[in-house]
Design a protein around this nucleic acid. Structure first.
Length: 1061
RNA sequence: GGGCCCGUAGCUCAGCCAGGUAGAGCGCCCGGCUGAUAACCGGGCGGUCGGGGGUUCGAAUCCCCCCGGGCCCA
């Protein structure tokens, strides 16, 4: 027959070694595999898709750990709830950040050097090796915090299979007519020599640039010019037109013998800046009148490209691009170097798109005189000089402003028009919005955010001019220009190409196809894909689609969870790919989590010095403590990291341990066998507090499950913590202590064991997803040895169903009332200075709220026990009113005017007869007396009336009741109190001797008479409580452990000696 | 500049959706309890609920504006 073992109670608690033990246990027994096998037999599928972390770190961020812990909790919960859980982790492995890291490592700074000095083949090899190392390190850390995922089989975006899956989608887009090559203005990094997508332009630096005012002379108006302002002189050679706003007023201003046109609101500021004090505003005209005015570009002769652009040199209305609050209200426009410019040109002008900066930031041949100069430096300088020399410059200064820089290498970016490959996402807005409607979001506001950005969706530039990425599968015929998109490796072979040994550059670049139109040689467009493309296809690519049909079985993804930055990122890119490839959303439910910030709510960064390293964290804080702590913060809000918070959570684990240790101690002493004595077997012996615990337990199960189903794991985490700390440890165990101390094997004790065991065992299962190490350990040490058929690991158990028949609202609310009464009694005792150890005769309760009476009667034994009173009396509130004693103080302000010269005598009267006066005024409203033969009537207003409870009654007034303690100690209470003092001392001494809980002793008591008499009177009680087989009232022998104690009633000498029975 | 979120005690956070006496844990001070006790219980100190305005008999809660922080975009 198994019974609960007592090991836990003998063990010294150490959470770190506990977790090490569990780690070995899992490894030795291959627990993850067993868990997975069990799950694989479950009837319902749960396709979870891991948002792949970027594989460029050897140490994970706290936020990354939080992310995986949330996932692990959900997956564990789902497995235990009967789902066939797909738990493949992923890694995002391509892209510029990794290329830049490798460039640094290899000591190169340009694409040219990669090609010529390093060789693309070696460069790619280095990227791959770096990624593999990152994956290994990250995997180790994820395992370290107990994440149960399929670590032997992750999806990795650089694998050939994955790349091939990517090609499938590009081909799909091409077939749908969504893939096109176009010219568009984008930020470009002249060092990385690649275009950056909008979302990659995220860093700005304060830089100094020229701030110049340039005159554009108007045709046919001698001496009259448009005055434009720019901070990018290098864009002037590409100028096509000038933008103005019809709603701004412009002024014609005479300066010397010239006339300048600029916004009226800017005249004063511009003239001041230029140091011009002599000027005259000739007239003001509405902006609309400027429309169509033609001008001559000052650099026309020096710049070749201007020949093409000259026909478009006129004023164009563009209110969206012009401000009356800065510059001159006239904006020079270069459609090849500005995105608004590009759009306005497209809509209203139609000039050729001229971009005069090359891939490396140097001016092109089209820039004529400026060809070969670097844009922000050399070209700026030369252009400003020329303008000045020609007299076209009205004023030059400098400006310090935020300027976008490359997020990887910090080089200032250039806006330029380049030919890139696009996917026409703007054409998919309707299906995107439609599909977004059907997705479930937690929290709800994430959906608002998502839909808002879908409404503004733009075409997607997918091409990048780099190396480490999925190659764009587009081949172009060198003879006839025919373009073909390849959707698979097989198709390469079908098109007459040779299967490359690796699908990355440079191998894939060498693949030549035969043109189906003209038979010519087709070569691949050398671009790679935007790295966001990679993770966006993971929902099918991780399953090997289209080669494998697993996706058809598994679709759609049931659940994803990532940080709120991924609303625009991964959540969007998944949907985008889903709609392109399958016309539907690939996922149905999303949870959003917050960011891990430092304790002041700022981002954690190595450079800010507030970064907490993961390895450091788990060397200082046990894993489960970290897990439960991060899980109890509201999931979608930011997590403020706090060592103190973690330390506090550590104390909770201490309580968890103590609770199980308590159960282990007493259940093992009594050889409690949970399989032989189950709840059903003790039904009739369950005490109200046992039923209360079971009610709380089943309510926990019910509310925990609904929190988990509703994607509020933080609520579930708080519930499991509160249950074990508040309900079990702080309350229930205190209530049953007396019962479990009983010597004999009573039915009441069995009932308490059955209730406690059920609660702890169920709690372990609920807590298992959150704190898998601790629950495993306690399960192995307490539950598994106690039950014959217990599964090998707690993680193989099923989530419990609530037994709602055990939920008793009334009992719980009665218990709440009783708790408050007990608290009030404790407060009242404390005020009266009566220790809880000392029994009192009675406590008196006057209910205020309904239900108190009933609750106290029903749970009277708890009130008696916890308040240490012999009787509980429920009375009407008049009891307390009548018990009150009154006292008065004279109120001089009122007495003086009434009694005039008699006042001093009245005051002495009041002082001398204060009790009498007070009583009379309190009960009749006045006090009548006679002074010097005159009758005086003292009324309520003449005094300050104070009511107080008498000495013998200490009262705590609460919202639900008045609770009074009768503080009068009679002989009986005194004797019992002294006996308890003695018992406590003996218990302390037993502990000092480190005696086993169930050891017997022999005891000697001598000392002051009251104490010895009390001890004699209570001998049976003392002997029983302290397991004394005999008590002697003589000096203890020399070999006894002896101490002298002071108690309120005097001095006592106690000696104890261990003795066997 | 725009969208969304957060701001409550010294610290970490509940409460806000569905308006009704501002709460918990930690910390600090005082007292108590103790055979699960590096735990626990009682009392005390501590709040312009970021600021301002509005709706309402009544606002931490609903509405508007502003300030600070976060994420995303421009």
């Amino acid at each position: 027959m198994p019974s609960v073992p007592g090991e836990l109670s003998k063990e010294k608690y150490n959470q770190f070694s506990l977790e090490e033990w569990v780690k070995s246990f899992w490894r030795d027994n291959d627990v993850y595999r067993l868990v997975k096998e069990k799950s694989s037999k479950s009837p319902r599928k749960f396709y979870f898709l891991d948002g792949p972390p970027y594989a460029s770190a050897t140490s994970i961020h706290i936020g990354t750990a939080w992310n995986k812990i949330i996932k692990d909790v959900v997956l564990r919960y789902k497995r235990m709830s009967g789902y066939r859980v797909w738990d493949q982790p992923g890694f995002d492995t391509h892209g510029l950040p990794i290329e830049v890291k490798i460039e640094k490592k290899l000591g190169v700074t340009s694409k040219k050097e990669i090609v010529e000095k390093i060789g693309v083949e070696r460069f790619i090899g280095e990227c791959r090796r770096f990624v593999d190392e990152s994956i290994e390190a990250m995997t180790r850390q994820f395992k370290e915090i107990g994440v149960f995922m399929d670590w032997d089989n992750p999806y990795v975006t650089y694998k050939d299979d994955y790349i091939e899956s990517g090609w499938w989608l590009i081909k799909k887009a091409w077939e749908k007519g969504l893939l096109y090559r176009g010219l568009q203005v984008h930020h470009w990094c002249p060092r990385c020599e690649t275009t950056l997508a909008d979302y990659e332009v995220s860093e700005y630096k304060v830089l100094e640039d020229p701030s110049i005012y340039v005159k554009f002379p108007l045709k046919g108006r001698n001496g009259e010019s448009l005055l434009i302002w720019t901070t990018t002189p290098w864009t002037l050679p590409a100028n096509a037109f000038v933008m103005a706003s019809p709603s701004i007023k412009y002024a014609r201003v005479r300066v010397g013998n010239e006339v300048l046109i600029l916004a009226s609101s800017r005249v004063k500021a511009v003239m001041e800046e230029a140091g011009v004090s002599e000027y005259e505003v000739l007239e003001e005209i509405p902006g609309s009148e400027l429309e169509g005015l033609e001008y001559v570009h000052p650099l026309e002769e020096l710049v070749d490209a201007q020949k093409e652009l000259a026909p478009y040199h006129r004023v164009v209305m563009a209110p969206e691009a012009v401000s009356a609050h800065e510059g001159t209200g006239l904006v020079h426009s270069a459609p090849g170097h500005g995105d608004i410019d590009f759009k306005i040109n497209e809509d209203r002008v139609g000039a050729p798109i001229v971009s005069l900066v090359d891939d490396t930031g140097k001016m092109t041949q089209g820039a004529g005189k400026y060809a070969g100069l670097y844009f922000r430096t050399e070209a700026n300088k030369a252009i400003v000089e020329d303008l000045e020399r020609m007299g076209a410059l009205f004023h030059k200064g400098t400006v310090r402003h935020r300027y976008p820089v490359c997020w990887r290498c910090k080089t200032p970016l250039v806006l330029r028009a380049t030919r890139q490959w696009f996917i026409k996402v703007s054409a998919l807005k309707t299906p995107l919005l439609r599909e977004a409607e059907g997705i479930r979001w937690q929290p709800g506001w994430a959906k608002t955010r998502f839909v808002n950005l879908l409404k503004e969706v733009r075409d997607w530039v997918i091409s990048r001019q780099r190396f480490w990425g999925i190659p764009l599968p587009v081949w172009v015929c060198q003879s006839c220009g025919y373009t073909h998109v390849v959707g698979s490796v097989d198709e390469i072979e079908e098109m007459g190409g040779e299967r490359p040994e690796n699908l990355h550059r440079p191998w894939v670049d060498r693949v030549e196809l035969k043109c189906p139109k003209c038979g010519g040689v087709m070569k691949r467009v050398p671009d790679v894909l935007d790295v966001w493309f990679d993770s966006g296809i993971s929902f099918y690519a991780s399953l090997g689609f289209p080669r494998s049909r697993l996706w058809d079985e598994m679709k759609p993804v049931d659940f994803i969870v990532e940080g709120h930055d991924q609303i625009r990122g991964w959540f969007f890119s998944l949907l985008r790919s889903g709609v392109i490839g399958f016309n539907s959303s690939p996922y149905r439910s999303v949870m959003v989590h917050g960011f891990a910030l430092d304790e002041h709510g700022r981002e954690m960064h190595k450079s800010l010095g507030n970064y907490v390293d993961f390895e450091e964290l788990i060397s200082k804080v046990p894993r489960d403590v970290v897990r439960l702590w991060v899980m109890q913060t509201t999931v979608w809000e930011d997590l403020k990291f706090s060592w103190k918070g973690l330390e506090e959570m550590g104390r909770t684990f201490n309580i968890i341990w103590n609770t199980f240790s308590f159960a282990s101690t007493y259940m093992s002493l009594d050889k409690y066998d949970p399989t032989a004595t189950r709840l059903d077997d003790v039904e009739g012996d369950l005490q109200p507090e046992d039923r209360w615990l079971l009610s709380r337990l089943n309510r926990l199960v019910k509310e925990y499950r609904s929190a988990m189903e509703d994607l509020r794991p933080h609520d579930a985490a708080r519930m499991i913590k509160n249950f074990i700390v508040e309900d079990v440890s702080h309350w229930y165990i205190r209530l049953i202590r007396r019962r479990v101390w009983e010597e004999e094997d009573t039915p009441g004790k069995r009932a308490a064991y059955a209730a406690l065991y059920t609660a702890l065992r169920t709690w372990l299962v609920l807590a298992a997803p959150f704190i898998p190490f601790t629950t495993e350990y306690l399960y192995q040490k307490l539950v598994r040895p106690s039950e014959d058929d217990a599964p090998l690991s707690i993680h193989l158990l099923d989530m419990p169903e609530p037994d709602t028949s055990r939920i008793d609202d009334k009992l719980e609310s009665d218990m709440d009332i009783v708790k408050r009464i007990v608290e009030a009694a404790a407060a009242a005792r404390s005020n009266a200075g009566i220790k809880l150890r000392r029994p009192v005769r009675r406590i008196i309760i006057a209910p205020i709220k309904p239900g108190v009476d009933e609750a106290v009667r029903r749970l009277e034994h708890i009130v008696r026990e916890m308040a240490n009173t012999k009787r509980v009396e429920v009375v009407g509130s008049e009891f307390f009113e009548q018990a009150k004693v009154y006292d008065v103080e004279p109120n001089y302000r009122e007495l003086g005017p009434t009694f005039k010269e008699l006042t001093p005598k009245v005051v002495s009267l009041i002082r001398e007869h204060s009790r009498e006066v007070a009583e009379a005024i309190a009960r009749q409203g006045k006090y009548t007396a006679s002074i010097d033969g005159r009758e005086v009537v003292i009324e309520r207003s003449h005094v300050k009336l104070n009511a107080a409870y008498p000495q013998w009654l200490s009262v705590k007034e609460t919202e639900i009741a008045l609770v009074g303690v009768d503080t009068r100690i009679e002989r009986e209470e005194l004797v019992e109190g002294v006996a308890r003092e003695i018992v406590r001392r003996i218990q302390a001494m037993r502990k000092e001797l480190d005696l086993p809980v169930n050891a017997y002793i022999e005891t000697w008591i001598t000392g002051d008479e009251t104490i010895v008499e009390s001890a004699k009177a209570m001998e049976g009680y003392i002997a029983n409580e302290t397991r004394s087989k005999a008590i002697h009232y003589t000096e203890p022998p020399g070999d006894a452990y002896t101490r002298v104690w002071e108690v309120d009633e005097g001095r006592v000498k106690i000696g104890i000696k261990a003795g066997s029975r």
